[in-house]
Nucleic acid binder design. Structure first.
Lengths: 275, 275
DNA sequence: CTAATAGTGTCTATTAGACAGTATGTT
DNA sequence: AACATACTGTCTAATAGACACTATTAG
């Protein structure tokens, strides 16, 4: 091995093709909630949980749906890539974004070896200020967890996608803790990305404040509770819920009037000193 | 754009060099604890928290210390890479491993553009059955957190490394939430990897059982408490601690005798149904 | 008045913090 | 006996679950 005087001399001599080269992509799980109107004028609208998908126009997986994403450019910071994609899809700049997991299965893309860094984004649909891109659509996510099997069914108009996985451990930390049982209509390994994201979110809303990224500026406590309930997929006890989030919200002097019942006080999120 | 009959025909035509190519590496934060003997024969040994580092023999960063790691091979599953490295370094197969974060700064490696998937591993040093690799060494980690500045000082014999970062948010989720203030002796961006790993561990031992991956099969409650204390960097209240971990451990019929005082009952970890 | 949601009061069980006290070993 | 750690008991404060009750609106 040649001896170098210093790092500068070493780098001049260095051949970047010495190691295997491959491509890196970023995918983003864009999650949000929306209202579902109910028949009775008196009842409150239900909350639905939804994810943004893009229909693939080209091979591979032509016609299937996939997460918004793209290839990382060689001179682009890793964190810039999801922000760039989100800006393109939603026209929003300040979106809650966190790294979810990096997927690196050898065969996840039939074209070439790809490492995929998946992010999770939470947005408030009311902030959307332009129509979705063509081929993009919100899918309502209906979850069903029984024994150790998680099943997610996605609906958008006539489109219905479904994915299902066996959870091999009680805490899913790695892609190897999940075994995909069914995947109808999702491209690449996006079914597993979606399931991991869903599980991460269900877990994190218990001990963080990230849910407020999906809420409008003002909201009623019942609306907030319904968002918790649709994500956790279980009913919460009203009074217990109010106590638990009491110190995370601030009462405003506004109320929300809706149907034949007492109006509900609107609340804001109480930002901690930092975020 | 050419129209393809099916995915097979499309792939035959596909040029993998269409997108930017780069290299992927995996780094592993191998954390463990060990005893530090104390002067008085009566006192219990203190617990020290430590991380495994490797001295760089070549450029770049020749002479600095770095995390064990390596380049991902093009036909290697992403998760296999850290396992392969751990096997080489520790000769152990069944090690607790979790993905920590994927680092992708444009300039993190002066040789070429690299995306680095960092993992965190927790091991019980008593299980080590072979000496460390040459150039590998355990460094004791001493942490100091004041205001929003975290400072880690690493000791091994005469070697002393130090890194320090400002925490821009109270919950560190992204590399952008940290601002590196000082880095003495650590290669690449390993200082930030180490700090993120340390923070993740501090956070996770409160709501998971991962600490037991660093414990021997049997241990006294005081030993377990001291491991918590050295990681959290604060004293815990004896009785409160015992109550909190009571249902996570099982009493054995063995005791540990050490110095001039009453022997302590040895406990085992109570495995949940799965892990 | 009725249906439906909004919001409060309170009892109880569980958990967390604090502190005091007792137990048991080696030297 | 003295020291050091091991371990238990109990008071109190805070929190969580459960349930009952009152309040307010549109139609």
């Amino acid at each position: 091995m040649k001896e170098y005087k210093d790092q500068e001399e070493f780098l001049k001599d260095y051949d970047a093709n010495l190691y295997d080269l491959l491509s890196v992509t970023t995918d983003i799980l864009v999650f949000s909630v929306s209202d579902i109107e109910v028949d009775s004028y008196r009842k409150l609208p239900e909350k639905a949980f939804s994810v943004l998908l893009v229909k693939r126009k080209n091979y591979p997986f032509k016609g299937n749906w996939c997460l918004p994403g793209g290839f990382l450019k060689i001179d682009e910071e890793l964190e810039e890539s999801p922000l760039r994609i989100l800006k393109k899809e939603t026209n929003l700049d300040d979106i809650y974004l966190e790294q979810l997991y990096t997927f690196g299965g050898v065969d996840r893309d039939p074209r070439l070896r790809v490492i995929n860094v998946a992010y999770m984004a939470l947005i408030d649909k009311e902030r959307l200020n332009k129509p979705l891109m063509t081929d993009s659509a919100w899918f309502t996510v209906v979850q069903n967890i029984q024994d150790n099997v998680i099943d997610l069914t996605l609906y958008n108009g006539g489109n219905r996608l479904e994915c299902q996985a066996l959870m091999l451990k009680s805490k899913i930390r790695s892609i190897n803790d999940l075994k995909l049982l069914r995947n109808e209509g999702l491209a690449f390994d996006n079914a597993l990305v979606l399931i991991m994201g869903m599980l991460r979110l269900k877990n994190k809303i218990d001990y963080t404040d990230i849910i407020f990224n999906m809420m409008p500026n003002t909201f009623t406590l019942k609306e907030l509770q319904k968002v918790y309930e649709v994500i956790l997929n279980k009913k919460l006890h009203d009074q217990a819920f109010r106590r638990q989030i009491a110190n995370k919200v601030v009462k405003t002097d506004m109320v929300k009037v809706s149907g034949g019942h007492r109006p509900s006080t609107l609340y804001r999120y109480r930002y901690p000193k930092d975020n």
